[in-house]
């Protein structure tokens, strides 16, 4: 057997998993190869060292933290569930759009140009509203004129005038 093969068989040898023939040829090699024999001895030493490593106790602080974990998780999931309710989705979508628009405005390199454009648009909008208001006033005025004319015309009609004649006779 070669040393490389022996290396692969060290654990099976220590754990008694080799066949009788494998074991015999391995022991034969170990008797003549000091390096492999030493490696086997150190492997056994490492194995024993690990097997006798004591189990550490956990700190009270960690135990407390572990017990608190489900409550933390519950609080977190309650908030999360509330935020993910379907009824809140339109609000969330609107908030997202608003946030995008505000971010776009806040971080735009040419913010003053946006300010100017917004001011211009506001001015145009204000002028349009003023114009509409003036038009509405003129329409109201015309309607009042029509109403007065109509009333005058109605009063001039015969049946209404007749009453007036009778009253004047008596």
């Amino acid at each position: 057997m070669e040393c490389k093969t022996i290396e692969d068989l060290l654990s099976p040898y220590l754990e008694d998993e080799l066949t009788q023939e494998e074991r015999q040829s391995m022991e034969e090699h170990l008797r003549s190869c000091q390096s492999c024999a030493e490696l086997l001895s150190f492997m056994e030493e490492a194995r024993v060292s690990l097997a006798t490593l004591p189990e550490l106790e956990i700190s009270e602080d960690l135990t407390k933290k572990l017990y608190d974990l489900p409550q933390k998780k519950k609080k977190f999931s309650l908030v999360f569930d509330f935020l993910l309710r379907p009824s809140l989705q339109p609000v969330m979508a609107a908030a997202t759009v608003l946030l995008v628009v505000v971010s776009f405005y806040m971080f735009h390199p040419n913010r003053s140009a946006i300010d100017r454009a917004l001011e211009r648009q506001l001015h145009i909008g204000y002028s349009k509203v003023e114009k509409l208001y003036a038009e509405a006033e003129s329409i109201t005025h015309s309607l009042n004129e029509y109403k007065d004319n109509l009333l005058v015309s109605i009063k001039k009609l015969k049946p209404f005038r007749g009453n007036e004649d009778n009253q004047s006779k008596t």
Binding site: L10, S11, P12, L39, L40, F42, M43, E45, A46
Partner: peptide, 20 residues
């Protein structure tokens, strides 16, 4: 798994040998 355990032990054995 068996091969990894053997490789690990072998590495530790070599470290142990070298340090000692």
């Amino acid at each position: 798994v068996k091969s990894r355990v053997n490789r690990g032990r072998l590495q530790l054995a070599k470290i142990l040998k070298e340090k000692k």
